[in-house]
Nucleic acid binder design. Structure first.
Length: 722
DNA sequence: AAAGCGGTACTTTTT
DNA sequence: GTACCGCTTT
């Protein structure tokens, strides 16, 4: 039993050789993958403000989940057209090189796990036979969230016996954004004509009020398989609507409600869940919970494993298990400082790529000295790699905890943080110790399970275990589990709680911004809301705040349209029409992005006080909040001229930078022009990219080769004709 | 090479 | 409000 990824990784290790991976391949998480993509983008000389690593990775991920290899991508007219249209025609080159680097590093990203499983089952008949005979029956839960790649794997694994049972609910499909396709359910009946369909319409979890209210929500979706769930449980309480002024007030209301319920209904902490759309919303709630001394647990991404210091030590572990792992190598080669700087690493990287090998191996090539690296730099690199090599050799034969402890010491990481007496430094030290302790905990757990069958659990066992943990899997090592749960609505799928709060029921938050533009997206958001409400057994409370701090600014949003989806007879009070007056228009002020969309000032704006300055320009509704304020360089010059008389508001947003107004130096540079740079000397502009305040020039310098310069900083001028 | 700085993007959601 | 990046200074 496990997720697709965790179950299949075990097979992939077993058959790694036949796939051309080392048995000890490591797995890149989202951030490792993003930074690898970024490296590739730069290596190809592309502008990472156009080729945004996250976006490109999403494209690559989509391709992989549809089993489109880089070479297939090259002949895929639709994909290429989409990339060209998005002004990123070389996406396919990034994909190809990224994939090559991963393979070379002995690394798989999350999507590769599924891709390689498909390849394995397609190309290795023996593996197919062994695996599919090992499992005579297969059950899949949450089938609506499977993607094409997973669908194919299942079809292959079940081909022999057809003993396949899947459970899914199209109303709970909330992962279309990562390639899940509801189509899989429909295909199922075609692929297995002998299959039987059971409709599970009776809900045994929730009160009938909750089930009926949820039905009234989901009925607003046009695109769904019709069905009506019902509950024979008692009617129960009506849905409680909480209206608050700020996110802090919202948190106060929620926490008070929890406390009063504990008094009145004898509920315990663990009976409550607070759900929200985005992880960032947990902060205000946490603050309030702490203030009232209520134990809680945030199930956010693997926030512990996302901390820099934890990632550092993990990178040491990964590199020792798989020395080819270049991302880990680069992360820690100079951490703690070993006087191995950027220049050295860049040179090594170029050298390694030229030789088609991982960084670690390249360090030991004799020809490394010939690259122009100083002897001292080479020595330091070799010293570092020798240390790693020493650990790497011991990985297979050493207890994970013992080795982890040694690595933490010998790497100098622990010493580095011990020396840091600041509060943050001490917290980081504690996190490192926590990580090492978790290795110990892992071993104990495994020892019990194995009952002596396996004598040593090694570091690669640990890594394998940890890299695929999902947020909800992380068990709380605290001895009491009696805590209020905080998590996103996504994470809550499949769980249930007696009492559920859904916080942040506001436009632009739930449904999220840009999620209302297409019916497809809006309906996925609505399904997510449906999932959130149906987590509750006894009671649901929905809350919204008039203003909320977001990205360092205040925002005011109308209550969510989803509140209106609920049949009012299930609500504990009628929605007040005035709440919806501003009907989806977002207001922002504060920070340096002060703006609102004209018209009357609503209650929340007046509350912000003393700054009733007429808007510089009233934006059409559709534009409000979609434009990021810019305050760089030339833009602010223009706006201070244009906004004369309103100096009282230093935070006023600049008018959008208009290319026609920009003083000459920015736009004076054109491709083909000869220029002279203060430090780099003479050269020729090859290309100008980017939009006005961020214009960049790719320049080939006569002596120094190509460089990418940001025009607003570059100290260069058109070459003077003699 | 390392520390200090100023500017920018970030917030969808997860394996 | 923060994390990260890249430039500048030392």
């Amino acid at each position: 039993m496990g997720t697709f990824h965790s179950v299949f990784v075990r097979f992939l290790r077993q058959y790694a050789q036949s796939l051309g991976y080392p048995e000890s391949f490591t797995i890149y998480d989202q951030s490792d993958s993003t930074s690898a993509v970024k490296t590739v983008i730069k290596e190809l000389g592309l502008d990472d403000s156009v080729y945004k690593p996250r976006d490109i990775l999403a494209r690559i991920s989509n391709a992989k989940n549809s089993l489109i290899t880089p070479s297939a991508y090259r002949t895929d007219g639709n994909a290429l057209r989409a990339d060209t249209y998005a002004k990123r025609p070389r996406t396919v080159d990034v994909y190809e090189l990224y994939q090559k680097r991963l393979k070379q590093s002995g690394v798989m990203d999350f999507d590769d796990i599924l891709v390689n499983m498909n390849i394995l089952l397609r190309d290795n008949p023996q593996a197919l036979e062994e695996i599919s005979s090992r499992f005579s029956h297969i059950m899949v839960d949450e089938y609506q969230d499977t993607n094409y790649s997973q669908y194919l794997i299942l079809r292959k694994l079940a081909a022999k016996h057809h003993n396949l049972c899947v459970v899914g609910d199209d109303s709970q499909s909330i992962y279309a954004f990562r390639g899940a396709q509801i189509q899989n359910i429909l295909n199922f009946r075609k692929d297995y004509p002998e299959s039987k369909v059971f409709r599970l319409e009776r809900n045994y979890r929730s009160t009938s009020t909750i089930v009926d209210a949820a039905n009234s929500i989901i009925e607003h979706n046009t695109n769904r398989i019709p069905k009506t769930c019902y509950s024979q449980a008692e009617k129960g309480e009506k849905i409680h609507i909480i209206k608050a002024f700020t996110e802090q007030d919202e948190a106060v209301e929620i926490v008070s409600e929890i406390q009063s319920r504990m008094r009145k209904d004898g509920a315990q902490y663990q009976d409550f869940a607070i759900l929200y759309r985005t992880n960032a919303q947990s902060r205000a709630l946490e603050e309030q919970l702490r203030r009232r001394n209520i134990p809680y647990l945030v199930y956010s991404g693997n926030s512990f494993f996302e901390r820099a210091e934890v990632k550092d030590l993990m990178a040491y572990f990964k590199l020792c298990v798989n020395p080819s792992d270049d991302e880990s190598f680069k992360r820690i080669v100079n951490k703690p400082a070993r006087a191995i700087g950027d220049t050295t690493v860049k040179a090594l990287e170029a050298f390694a790529h030229a030789n088609g090998m991982p960084l670690f191996r390249a360090v030991f090539l004799e020809s490394l000295e010939a690259t122009g690296l100083r002897g001292a730099a080479v020595q330091k690199l070799r010293a570092f790699c020798s240390m790693i090599d020493g650990f790497a050799r011991r990985v297979p034969v050493t207890d994970a905890f013992e080795l982890a402890t040694e690595i933490a010491e010998a790497s100098g990481l622990l010493a580095m943080y011990r020396a840091d007496l600041s509060i943050e430094g001490q917290a980081r030290l504690a996190n490192l110790e926590e990580l090492v302790n978790s290795v110990a905990g892992f071993i104990e757990e495994r020892d019990e399970e194995a009952e002596g069958a396996q004598d040593t659990f090694t570091l690669d066992d640990f890594l394998e275990n940890v890299s695929l943990l999902s947020s909800v899997d992380v068990t709380d090592d605290d001895d009491t589990n009696n805590k209020v749960a905080l998590m996103t609505a996504h994470s809550a799928k499949g769980l249930e709680f007696p009492y559920v709060f859904v916080a942040g029921m506001e436009e632009n938050l739930f449904p999220g911004q840009n999620m209302v533009l297409s019916l497809k997206d809006l309906e996925e958001e609505r399904r997510l809301f449906y999932v959130a409400v149906t987590r509750a057994r006894k009671a649901v409370a929905l809350s919204y705040a008039g203003t909320r701090m977001r990205n360092g600014r205040h925002e005011s949003n109308a209550p969510s349209r989803f509140l209106r989806d609920i049949d009012s007879r299930y609500l504990d009070r009628p929605l007040e029409d005035e709440d919806f007056d501003n009907d989806g228009v977002r207001h922002e002020w504060g920070g340096f992005g002060s703006r609102w969309s004209g018209g009357r000032l609503d209650r929340f704006q007046r509350q912000s006080g003393d700054r009733e300055i007429p808007p510089l320009r009233s934006a059409p509704v559709g534009m409000t909040g979609t434009q990021k304020p810019r305050n760089s360089g030339y833009g602010s010059v223009i706006s201070s001229a244009g906004a004369a008389g309103v100096e009282k508001s230093p935070g006023r947003p600049s008018a959008p930078a208009d290319p026609d107004f920009v003083p000459s130096p920015m736009t004076a540079f054109k491709p083909g022009m000869r220029i002279e740079h203060n430090r780099f000397g003479p050269g020729e502009i090859l290309e100008i990219t980017g939009v006005v305040p961020e214009l960049k020039a790719r320049v080939r310098f006569d002596e120094l080769g190509e460089k990418l310069l940001l025009l607003k900083y570059a100290k260069m001028r058109p070459e003077q004709k003699q």
